[in-house]
Write a protein that binds this DNA or RNA. Structure first.
Lengths: 214, 214
DNA sequence: ATAAAACCGGATATGGTGTTCGGTATTGTA
DNA sequence: TACAATACCGAACACCATATCCGGTTTTAT
C-alpha cells in the first residue's frame, strides 16, 4: 500500500482514538478529526465513507486483535476452543486493556450499538460452547444473552473503574456468572487478587494498526 | 392547567410514542412529531426545550408509573420496601408492560442512555437493600452494578422477545441472578410458567399521562 | 367584553455531514 | 530522471435537522 495512505490512516486513527479519550463519539465532529489528523477534508472521505464507517473500522481493528487467538485456532483447526472458557475470557480482557483509555468514549450513544453488536457476536460464539448451567427453567436464548450481557457489562464497568487488573475482572465475572456447570465452585474459589498484576503476557503485538481494505 | 396545553401535550406524547413503535428515536424528526401531533412548530418548542427534553419527559412519565409504588411507600413511611424484592421486581415488570410496544424504539442509540440512566438510578435504589450474596470476593460496587445491569438487560431482552409474561421474566432474572442470600434456592424453585398470565393486577391507572411542569 | 396566554406557520440562523472541483505534491516505475 | 498514476489539498457547496423569531389568530378564564 502507498506510504501516503498508510500515514493518513495512522493519523486518522490516532486522532480519532485521541479524541475519544476526551469526549464521546457523538460529540466528535469530522472536522475535529480532520484538524487533529492534519489532513484534507476530501482525503478523509476517500478513506472512510462516513463517520460511522470510521467507527466500524476501528471496532473491527480492536476485535481483530482482541479475538485474534480465536481466528488463529479456527484457522488451524485447533478445537481446544471448546475448553477452558475462563482462561479465554482472561485473554480477551488482556487484549482489551490496550484499548481501555478510549473505550468509555465509545460505550455510550449510537457508537455503543456499533461496538456492542460486534462484541456480542464474538462473545456469543465464545459462550455458545457453554452448556446451560441453569437447566430447563430458563430459555436457552435468554441464558446465552445473559452471559454475553454480563461480560459486556463487566467490561463497561471496568472501563469506568480502571484500577483493576484483567484477573480481577475475570474473577468478578466468574464469581457472579457461572459460565460452566463444573465452575459453580468458582464462587468460593475466586478471590480478589489485590496485586495489580501489571501488563504481562498476551503480547502478540503485530503492528497492524490499520485496516487493510481499500 | 389550560385545556389547550393538556391537549397539546397529549397529542405530542401520542404522536411520539406512536412514531417510536415504527422507528428508533434517532430517526424521528421533530417535524414528524409536529405533523403527526398536528400542532405548530412554535407550540412544540414552547412545551419542550429540545427533542431530548421530550424524551426525558416521556421517561419521567414512564418511571413515574413504573415505580409509583415506591413513591407512595416512601411518602407514607412504609418501610416494607426492604422486604420481598422479587415481588417488587414483578411489580415493576407489570407496569413496564404498558410501555413495551414502543420501548424498542428507545432502547438503542442516544435515547438508550437517557432511559437507562433513569432506570438504573431507580433500580440501584431498589437493589441497594440487597445484602451481597457473593460475600467479599467481589466489590460491593460491582455487585450492585451487576444486579442492576442484569435486570435492565432482562427488560431489554423482554422488549425484543415479547411473548413472555412479567412472571416469566421475573423468573428468568431470579434464576440467573440471586438478589438475596435467602433466595439462592430460587434457582430450583423458579420454573418457567408457560401459562402467559395475561394482564392482571397492578392496575393503578391514574390518567396522569402528561407531565405537570411548565 | 376583554386581556392574557396559547397557538399558528413560514422564514431564518446555526451547525454538522458529505460532495464537488480544479489544482498540487508524492510515489512507483521505466 | 522523466512521467503517468494516484494520493492529497481546501474552499465552496448542497443538504438536512435543530431550534429561534416574529407578526398575526384563536381560545380561555374572568
Amino acid at each position: 500500500m502507498d506510504r501516503r495512505q498508510r500515514k493518513t490512516r495512522e493519523a486518522v486513527f490516532r486522532a480519532f482514538t485521541g479524541l475519544l479519550k476526551e469526549e464521546s463519539y457523538s460529540k466528535i465532529t469530522v472536522q475535529q478529526i480532520i484538524d487533529r489528523a492534519d489532513i484534507g477534508r476530501t482525503t478523509f472521505y476517500t478513506h472512510y465513507e462516513t463517520k460511522d464507517a470510521l467507527l466500524e473500522s476501528l471496532c473491527a481493528d480492536i476485535f481483530g486483535h482482541v479475538f485474534s487467538e480465536d481466528l488463529q485456532k479456527e484457522r488451524t483447526h485447533d478445537f481446544s476452543r471448546d475448553h477452558d472458557i475462563p482462561s479465554r475470557l482472561k485473554h480477551v480482557l488482556y487484549h482489551l486493556q490496550d484499548h481501555m483509555e478510549y473505550l468509555p468514549g465509545i460505550l455510550s450513544g449510537e457508537s455503543r450499538d456499533v461496538f456492542m453488536k460486534s462484541f456480542r457476536a464474538h462473545l456469543k460464539d465464545l459462550f455458545s460452547a457453554v452448556k446451560a448451567p441453569y437447566a430447563a427453567s430458563v430459555p436457552q436464548d435468554y441464558m446465552l444473552n445473559h452471559m454475553v450481557c454480563d461480560f459486556a457489562e463487566a467490561v463497561q464497568w471496568w472501563s469506568e473503574n480502571n484500577q483493576y487488573s484483567p484477573e480481577d475482572i475475570s474473577g468478578f465475572f466468574l464469581a457472579t456468572t457461572p459460565v460452566c456447570p463444573c465452575e459453580t465452585g468458582a464462587r468460593k474459589r475466586c478471590r480478589l487478587q489485590n496485586a495489580h498484576a501489571g501488563r504481562q503476557g498476551c503480547s502478540d503485538d503485530s503492528g497492524a494498526f490499520l485496516r487493510s481494505d481499500g
